[in-house]
């Protein structure tokens, strides 16, 4: 166990606990807060792996953007503490079935992947992070290139999507 492993375990436990709290919590704002912890923990994992750009994106887009919008829309719509009511038997059974199916899918994917067997004798369970961090130039070039590894088309598609969102927002908010 080195520092890398310890941090990974801490983050993993943190993420799992927060994820459980997210789905168990009855208050919707609390659920959003726990979700924030899940997303921050994930960003922490990216930083641990040395993907600082991805970690920053995770923090910016999910923690700083999506969660803020969630909380904002909750505050705007419900106002008072609107706790979830207890559900009836039919809903409980349906939820249980969906949860089990989802768990089965994830578990099968995890087990079929075929991870390398854990070598308990090694000093570290995790591969050491890639020290040669990818520079911003490389990321930017790949984003806007039309070469083999270029992402120009998805990039532009996303921007068209965002444009559609902006136009839709204006149409909804516009005074008639």
């Amino acid at each position: 166990m080195n520092a890398q492993d310890i941090m990974f375990v801490i983050l993993a436990v943190f993420i799992v606990c927060s994820a459980f709290a997210t789905v168990i919590s009855r208050s919707i704002v609390r659920a959003a807060t726990y979700l924030l912890f899940v997303l921050l923990g994930t960003a922490g994992l990216y930083f641990l792996m040395g993907y600082t750009f991805l970690g920053s994106v995770q923090t910016m887009v999910y923690a700083g953007g999506v969660i803020v919008l969630y909380v904002f829309s909750i505050l705007l719509t419900s106002g008072q503490q609107e706790e979830l009511r207890t559900t009836n038997l039919k809903k409980t059974v349906a939820g249980l079935v969906i949860a089990l199916v989802g768990f089965g899918v994830f578990a099968s994917v995890l087990f079929m992947y075929g991870f390398a067997p854990i070598d308990f004798a090694a000093s570290s369970f995790l591969a050491s992070p890639d020290e040669s961090v990818i520079s911003m130039d490389t990321i930017g070039t790949h984003m806007l290139s039309t070469d083999k590894d270029g992402y120009l088309l998805p990039f532009e598609a996303v921007s068209v999507l965002l444009l559609a969102c902006i136009v839709a927002g204006i149409v909804i908010a516009r005074k008639r």
Binding site: L36, F53, V57, T59, M60, A63, G64, V68, V71
Partner: peptide, 16 residues
């Protein structure tokens, strides 16, 4: 290497 971006990202958590 993404310092400025990281700075903006972390700063946005305060709003929450």
């Amino acid at each position: 290497n993404v310092g400025v971006f990281f700075f903006l990202a972390i700063g946005s958590i305060g709003v929450v």
